[in-house]
């Protein structure tokens, strides 16, 4: 079948990520994935986050930007820290927040996601923050919400975790100023990592020199190169001359599924120690989305060491999420919180 003759599945397809995420004016309406968004959009998120970063340091940690707006945290999968930072971000913007821990409520009683969404829409909610174990869940919800509602993806399956990626970009920009000449290595379970996918897209869009991934083959997706990365099998070559090291969390389940023999062997091969960090540039910065398994992914000395920006990531997470909320709800104009 020549695709030109029979535009088979192209003309009637669901819209791609970027057209779903942007409104008619090219402004962010939903934030589902970093894939397909322009450098301009990603930079705007970081710029707005920069302007919000002062709010948390004020005596009164609040701006009235989203007063009267209702934001629903829809967590179909458990999370403490991501939900807390979204919660704080919303409150610092003066929004009302409802937290629904759906992992233990409606859907286990057989209610479909769409029914849950419809019910919350009927309560005049303005934004859904969604975490779900299925890849594509946030896209699915974004396709079905009323036109005035925004959806922010707080992690869907293995697919995307765009606010985490953007807080990482924000952190890198603060430390390194410019993305242009950076070599970034991501180490660990790329296969199951929504964080890694979102980081890879963002890093490439922001124009870094090289993105590397370092992992055993069982933790790499097939055709990894097609994501826009170079694959390395060991830390010595992979970390050579690197500016930023991003560690990923290793889930215990991976040992049960015959993907890895043991945490011990993983640390032997891929654990970040001070000695191994010395393969990278001296001013390398070390990141981790948390929570860290000390002694599995990295040594405590590295996690707490001078190159670590792990706690800055957490702090920056609030400003970044405030930025994404304000931008998607259209309450950020002319480069300043209005």
């Amino acid at each position: 079948m020549s695709s030109s003759k029979h535009p088979a599945s192209t003309s009637f397809k669901a819209p791609d990520s970027s057209s779903l995420q942007l409104n008619d004016q090219g402004k962010l309406r939903h934030f589902l994935t970093t894939d397909g968004l322009s450098k301009q959009v990603l930079t705007e998120i970081m710029d707005v986050a920069e302007s919000f970063s002062g709010v948390s340091e004020q005596a009164v940690k609040k701006v009235p930007l989203l007063r009267g707006k209702t934001i629903a945290n829809l967590f179909f999968e458990n999370s403490t820290r991501t939900r807390t930072t979204f919660d704080l971000a919303a409150k610092r913007l003066s929004a009302d927040v409802i937290n629904l821990n759906i992992a233990t409520s409606a859907t286990t009683k057989g209610e479909s996601i769409l029914d849950t969404i419809r019910n919350l829409e009927a309560m005049q909610v303005d934004m859904f923050i969604v975490r779900h174990a299925d890849s594509g869940a946030a896209h699915f919800i974004a396709r079905h919400v009323a036109p005035h509602i925004s959806v922010i993806n707080a992690g869907d399956g293995r697919h995307a975790h765009p606010t985490q990626a953007m807080l990482d970009m924000f952190t890198i920009r603060r430390v390194k100023k410019d993305f242009k000449r950076l070599k970034v290595a991501i180490i660990g379970d790329i296969l199951h990592s929504r964080v890694a996918r979102s980081q890879i897209h963002a890093l490439n869009t922001l124009g870094v020199q090289e993105v590397r991934v370092i992992a055993p083959k069982t933790l790499l997706p097939s055709d990894t190169n097609s994501l826009g990365v170079h694959v390395y099998g060991d830390l010595k070559t992979g970390l050579d001359d690197v500016d930023v090291v991003i560690m990923l969390r290793l889930q215990r389940e991976r040992m049960g599924a015959a993907l890895l023999p043991s945490e011990h062997e993983y640390f032997e091969c891929f654990g970040l120690t001070e000695e191994r960090l010395s393969y990278a540039k001296p001013e390398v910065c070390v990141m981790h989305p948390g929570p860290i398994n000390r002694g599995v992914e990295m040594d405590a000395a590295v996690a707490d060491g001078p190159n670590s920006v792990i706690l800055q990531q957490v702090t920056n997470g609030i400003a970044t999420r405030m930025a994404v909320m304000a931008l998607t709800l259209g309450h950020y104009a002319a480069g300043k919180p209005s």
């Binding site: 890849s135 594509g136 293995r158 697919h159 996918r197 997706p221 097939s222 055709d223 097609s226 994501l227």
Partner: peptide, 15 residues
């Protein structure tokens, strides 16, 4: 299918 699309979308692949 376990390939470029499963990697991109983070969907579990069937080799």
């Amino acid at each position: 299918h376990d390939g470029a699309m499963s990697s991109k979308l983070g969907l579990a692949g069937i080799p």
